[in-house]
């Protein structure tokens, strides 16, 4: 494995990744307990500024709990610690979220769903930008359809459009691609990586290959511990699907998960 996780080399790659957008990093540090039972003690999760951080672990390991803590959602857990962006500004209102479930409102049509965030903030919807976004994601033929008339992959693209419409510094992805078929999943990974370039992304996943393909930084969560693992070589994500180094890195991650 050629991966070198030294933060220096990582920073030096940032010029390649950074688009016009330049999001700060984020650090979660502290302990998580479930009703007195410790889930994680004194852990630090550092999100790569403007890049993809993958949180890999088996189902039920509590990865989503960390993501939900950052999102400010109920977790049923007690968190004792801090969650601070590296620019020291307040985190609230700077987070976008996408989950395995597409979270579309079934009664709104595609455009209405993409416009939801602006509508909830009481902002005027930037329809030209929205339509351009819908077009870029290849959804313009379906703009007037309701979610029930869309396929699973199309619905997840709508969810991505809504997440992009939000234009937030931090994007939290909770296994958004895991319910999709292999081809659609790869397409979605490409789309997400391209359009989220420059944002600070946290991707929770149980798929080692996904982590190898997308991660600038990889954390493994198992047995109530969090460990950082070097990413696959290459600073531009998504790494090509047939990249041999990436594939062997993914296989090594899988072996690591199985031990």
């Amino acid at each position: 494995m050629a991966g070198n996780v030294g933060s220096d080399s990582y920073e030096s790659h940032m010029g390649v990744i950074r688009d016009s957008y330049d999001a700060p990093g984020l650090r979660l540090a502290g302990s998580v307990r479930f009703g007195g039972v410790p889930l994680l003690a004194d852990v630090t999760l550092d999100l790569a500024p403007g890049g993809w951080t993958c949180l890999l672990g088996p189902s039920g390991s509590g990865k989503s709990t960390l993501l939900r803590l950052i999102a400010g959602l109920d977790t049923g857990a007690d968190f004792d610690g801090t969650i601070i962006p590296s620019d020291d500004k307040d985190l609230s209102g700077r987070v976008a979220y996408m989950a395995q479930d597409d979270l579309l409102m079934p009664w709104l049509d595609l455009r209405g769903n993409v416009a939801l965030g602006a509508r909830l903030r009481g902002d005027p919807v930037d329809w030209p930008r929205l339509d351009a976004l819908v077009d870029r994601l290849g959804l313009s033929d379906h703009a007037a359809k309701r979610p029930a008339k869309l396929s699973g992959g199309q619905r997840q693209r709508v969810a991505l459009a809504r997440t992009l419409m939000e234009n937030k510094d931090f994007v939290l992805l909770d296994e958004p691609f895991s319910a999709l078929d292999a081809r659609t999943r790869a397409d979605m990974q490409d789309l997400a990586a391209r359009h989220l370039a420059g944002r600070t992304v946290l991707l929770v996943t149980h798929d080692p290959m996904e982590a190898a393909r997308l991660g600038h930084k990889i954390y493994l969560m198992e047995n109530n511990a969090l460990s950082e693992i070097p990413p696959a070589p290459g600073a531009t994500v998504p790494r090509p699907g047939d990249d041999a180094a990436m594939l062997s890195h993914g296989a090594a991650l899988l072996e690591r998960l199985r031990t």
Binding site: R68, A71, G72, L73, S92, G93, V95, A96, Y97, A99, D101, L103, M105, L116, G117, L120, R121
Partner: peptide, 14 residues
């Protein structure tokens, strides 16, 4: 109401 949709509204600060 779907719990996940509630979460989404929470994140959007509804």
């Amino acid at each position: 109401v779907d719990h996940n949709l509630r979460d989404l509204f929470r994140i959007y600060g509804a």
